[in-house]
């Protein structure tokens, strides 16, 4: 278990066998007809007499994105077209060639995350690594992870310092509580979304279809962990810092007006790598793995250590455990 957490070889083979398709949801033919009709009407309107082929590539992409279906309802070809549009858009927006995939969940994997509070020293390396890996806008200094600096002897979040900037960490008299999406088993955000733009994948990651989200922010009010962030503007990322290996549900570049969140680095974890925050942690405080694998480190921690789930009383069944070393 050096670099792998999961049966990645088998997983990758299984994934390549199933290609890029995702489990299809039962679809109503009536709806599909309607959508095709709308698409045809859209093309006719946009064509305005001249052929749609006469439009520029970017106009055709804009029309294609506008008419794009929900991720879980697209067929294989529609997904391929969507991925190609995403790659072209990244080229136009950022001048960078990216690859966008959509590797499906690996059968027999359910991700779990644990964090050893006795080890965390508050360096916030995880925050920086997350921002870089996930193509998060650099303009507001916010990422998917918030590290709280807590006074000793309390769990009262209202006493946390969110913006600590000491010369060195750890500070005397303080402990550190990193909070990110807890990948709930019964997520309040998913229940809240009025258009099913966010859901829990079979391997446990709560994801957003950035092309389907209408940007109402109701999920952000429903989340007990403040784990969802809205793109108030188009994200600003220096050209050289774009991570080119991306996933449809993960770190592909987003635009303004949609929600985003931690996806456990879906682009990495489904290929058997660790999430960027896990890799960046200098103290080894983070434990990530497959809950269904009896030999995984996450299972060892859950079975042998005293663990605690944040705000468990909210009833969302978080799949993120905080660990404290015993005496």
């Amino acid at each position: 278990m050096e670099n792998d957490y999961a049966p990645s070889k088998e997983g990758e083979r299984a994934a390549s066998k199933s290609g890029n398709s995702v489990p299809k949801q039962p679809d109503s033919p009536q709806r599909r007809r309607l959508l095709k009709g709308a698409a045809a009407a859209g093309v006719v309107v946009a064509g305005a007499g001249s052929a749609a082929a006469g439009l520029s590539q970017s106009s055709r992409d804009a029309l294609g994105s506008f008419l794009q279906d929900h991720y879980r309802r697209m067929d294989r070809q529609e997904i391929q077209e969507a991925l190609a549009r995403i790659e072209r858009r990244a080229e136009r927006d950022h001048g960078v060639a990216i690859r966008c995939g959509n590797q499906p969940p690996i059968a027999g994997v359910a991700f779990g995350y644990a964090l050893n509070l006795s080890r965390c020293t508050g360096t916030r390396r995880c925050v920086d690594a997350c921002i870089r890996e996930n193509n998060t806008g650099r303009h507001d200094g916010l990422g998917n992870i918030r590290v709280l600096s807590m006074p000793d002897n309390t769990w009262d979040l209202s006493r946390a310092d969110h913006h600590y900037q000491p010369e060195t960490v750890p500070e005397k008299g303080r402990w550190y509580l990193p909070v990110q999406c807890q990948q709930c088993g019964d997520p309040a955000c998913v229940q809240a979304c009025p258009v099913e733009a966010t859901w829990r994948e079979p391997d446990g990651m709560v994801v957003v279809d950035y092309d389907w989200c209408i940007g109402c922010r109701y999920c952000a009010t429903a989340c007990p962990y403040w784990a969802r962030r809205f793109n108030w503007r188009d994200p600003v990322i220096p050209k050289g810092e774009i991570t080119p290996d991306t996933h449809y549900l993960g770190n592909r570049p987003r635009r303004r007006g949609v929600m985003e969140k931690c996806t456990l680095c879906v682009q990495r974890s489904r290929r058997g790598s660790y999430p960027a925050c896990h890799q960046a942690c200098p103290t080894g405080a983070r434990i990530f793995g497959n809950l269904l694998d009896a030999d995984s480190p996450i299972r060892y921690v859950l079975e042998h250590k005293r663990v605690y789930r944040l705000k468990e009383e909210q009833g969302t069944d978080p799949q993120f455990w905080y660990v404290v070393d015993g005496p």
Binding site: R31, E196, C213, G215, C216, R217, R256, G257
Partner: peptide, 16 residues
Amino acid sequence: IGRPERIWHALPLLGS
């Protein structure tokens, strides 16, 4: 809402 052009995603049959 951040993406008003996507309001059709909330329509019955067409959206979800």
